[in-house]
Every structure is written in C-alpha cells, then in structure tokens.
C-alpha cells in the first residue's frame, strides 16, 4: 500500500507543477513526471511476488510463475508515444517563444496575438 501511495504522491507533484508554474518548459516537465508515475503504477499493479520476468527461456519446462505481461505490454507502447507527444509539446513551446519572446504563459495570454 505504501508503494501505491508514494506513486500517487509523485502524480500529485506533477499536478501541482502543472497548476502553479508559469513557465512552459516547467509545465512540460510536470506532465512528463505525471506520465512516469502512471507507468510505474501499471508496472506495480502487475507485479507478482516471486514471479520471473515474462520470458520463457526453455519451452520444454513446465509453467513457472511470471509477472503479469498485460500491463507491461500496455506500458511498452505508451512509453514511445509519450516521447512523441512530449516532443510535440516542446515544438509548440519553441514556436510560442519564437513569436512572443517569452515562456511565461500569463504574458502570452495578455499579449493576445
């Protein structure tokens, strides 16, 4: 239970950063931290104590206890997608910086075009 709670605290740190920071890069970093906590949560839920990694080294041997392969398969694709979406957020940030000359979202909001 402690692990789940700590994982959620990491998620809350990310939400706190998104809500209170004014810098666009800091907001992207906070979103990345939230993504990390979600990946960790899925991997934690799938863990079985005493289980091996989901690989069958010798197909002839009888079944051994493995950790759950389903959450890991979900996280595997999402890790790569997170990289692509983070890059897209960063390109938006650099485009806004080119136009307004600042990363401050309140200033960008006041300038309006």
């Amino acid at each position: 239970m402690t692990l789940y709670l700590l994982c959620f605290v990491l998620f809350m740190v990310g939400i706190y950063g998104v809500l209170t920071r004014r810098n666009l890069i800091k907001i992207v970093i906070s979103l990345t931290i939230m993504e990390f906590s979600i990946f960790l949560m899925l991997a934690l839920v799938g863990y079985v104590s005493g289980g091996q990694a989901p690989l069958v080294l010798d197909p002839e041997t009888p079944y051994v206890q493995v950790v759950d392969p389903l959450p890991q398969a979900m996280v595997l694709t999402t890790l790569v997608i997170a990289l692509a979406t983070n890059s897209m957020l960063l390109t938006m940030a650099i485009r806004l910086y080119k136009k307004y000359g600042t990363f401050d979202i309140r200033k960008i909001n006041e300038l309006k075009g």
Binding site: A53, L55, L76, L83
Partner: peptide, 11 residues
C-alpha cells in the same frame, strides 16, 4: 525470443 522488439529497437 528475447527482451526487445520493434518499439525498443526502433528508438
């Protein structure tokens, strides 16, 4: 057959 695959190797 090993850890890895398309997503890993592509990056």
């Amino acid at each position: 057959i090993d850890p890895g695959g398309g997503f890993t190797g592509g990056v």
